[in-house]
């Protein structure tokens, strides 16, 4: 058991192979469920391409698993603000995702101005800014500006939500 765990350590990439495999099975099962009579005008039918895609996914999953077990590794992507020397910082990611999810939950009910403010303010906070009041003001300003900008400039009415009638 312990040898299995140490063997799996640093092989998080096997999860990618697993995901590919799962996707492959999913595509296959979904295509399998389609029922279409053979038709002269469409000899290929809606199932052929999904089968091919499922096959490609499964082959990739197997090859990737083999590659990773043999010590292969994908290169993480660099960039201007990316410092790969420290490991993934979950203390940033999770609050960030939280702000994003909060926005999804709030947007239709509370409206864009409120949910957008929550999104921006929460994200800035998660990313390490500590100017609470300044950030809050910027968030409100951005949300209001985009709300009116989209409404007046583009004719797109973002939801006003709770502030319906005030905005």
């Amino acid at each position: 058991m312990s040898s299995l765990i140490s063997g799996l350590k640093g092989r998080a990439e096997l999860g990618v192979a697993l995901l590919l495999g799962a996707a492959g099975v999913l595509v296959f099962l979904d295509a399998n469920r389609l029922v279409t009579p053979y038709s002269q005008s469409d000899p290929v039918g809606p199932k052929t391409v999904p089968y091919i895609v499922a096959g490609l996914l499964l082959v990739c999953a197997v090859l990737l698993a083999v590659n990773v077990i043999r010590g292969g590794q994908g290169e993480a992507e660099g960039g201007e603000d990316v410092d790969l020397t420290h490991p993934a910082d979950w203390k940033t990611i999770l609050p960030l995702a939280g702000a994003f999810i909060l926005n999804i939950l709030l947007i239709d009910w509370a409206g864009w101005v409120i949910s957008g403010t929550v999104l921006f303010w929460g994200s800035v906070l998660a990313l390490g800014s500590r100017h609470y009041i300044r950030d809050g003001l910027i968030s409100v300003a951005l949300s209001l500006l985009t709300f009116y900008g989209f409404y007046l400039g583009l004719g797109i009415a973002l939801p006003a939500g709770l502030l319906e009638g005030i905005l």
Partner: peptide, 27 residues
């Protein structure tokens, strides 16, 4: 400042994706 930059990217990404169909599902 980087917090503003990346929060801004998320903010505008959300706005852009949402404004296509005005569906929270897209988010």
């Amino acid at each position: 400042p980087r917090p503003y930059l990346y929060a801004g990217i998320l903010f505008f990404a959300t706005l852009g994706a949402y404004s296509v169909n005005l569906q929270a599902f897209d988010l």
